[in-house]
Amino acid sequence: MAIITLVKVSKYYTKRPALGDTSFAVNEGDFFGIAGPKKSGKSTIINLCMDFIRPTSGNITVMGQKSWKLSTEKKKLIGFMPSNPTYCETMKAIDVIRTAAKIKGVTDNEQVMRLCKHFNVDRNKRVGSLPLSCRKKIAIVIALMGNPKLVIMDNCFVALDKDTKNKLAHYLLDLNNKEGVTVVISDRNIDLLQQICTRIAIMRKGSLLEISEKEVLLKSDTRRISIKTSDDLSALYNLFRITEVDKDDNGYISFLYKKDINSLIGALATYNLDDLQITLPSLGDALVRFYERQLEQENGGEN
């Protein structure tokens, strides 16, 4: 059963759409990711679902009700974390959390304290003195307190330290796997979404490119080649027409390769290699391919 449904939803602020004609559904129990760069429409979708903004056209249903008619009882079942949480600056973090708990009708104080301890919330510090990462921890506790049936997090992992990112990812996976909580998260870090989401929507410039199971996205004959060598590989790049090459801090050169792998290995045998890795491409690579295909279609259309 669909817990969130968007049917032909669009949102225009100016002539250019913040969100084009978009339709999709998030089913109960999904761990749904919305991936895309800045200004791709991720936050617009989430703000529409949360009824912070109204669609220019189309319908949005959340938990069986229109998003702008969602009852307070249904809202109690939604845990939400905004992209840039701001609160009363003179209040302590714990006071903000307690206020939210009172309004949400959360009576289990122990659970709230456990969440605060788990995510290392600076409980007694005033919100005004906290950086974004700490305010996000407050937002995480507010979103996860009580027994939410639907958790929505915008720019989920942005500004969080590595430890908190891992804790949050594991907590959300536990909620989804053990309690069947539906989770909808958006983030720019596609590779991180790839690790935890079961379905991923890819956005670009306000358009929904594709929604797919993550395994399907990665099915292809493309491989990521990572090489460590002190030799000059320019001739190799020219031979196989490799144009986009990445270099990391560990001295590895990597590129995507789609042609006959035997030819490449044969050519690499003439070089003095320290290391060679051939791996499946990441979701980020898949996204780049989608963008390239989209661009080819756009250019084809113009021609």
Partner: peptide, 18 residues
């Protein structure tokens, strides 16, 4: 706003209040 000009709308309106 939350008193400084920053909007705490997301916090307030995401709570279960109309």
């Amino acid at each position: 706003t939350n008193g400084r000009g920053d909007s705490d709308v997301c916090f307030v309106y995401s709570l279960p209040v109309s």
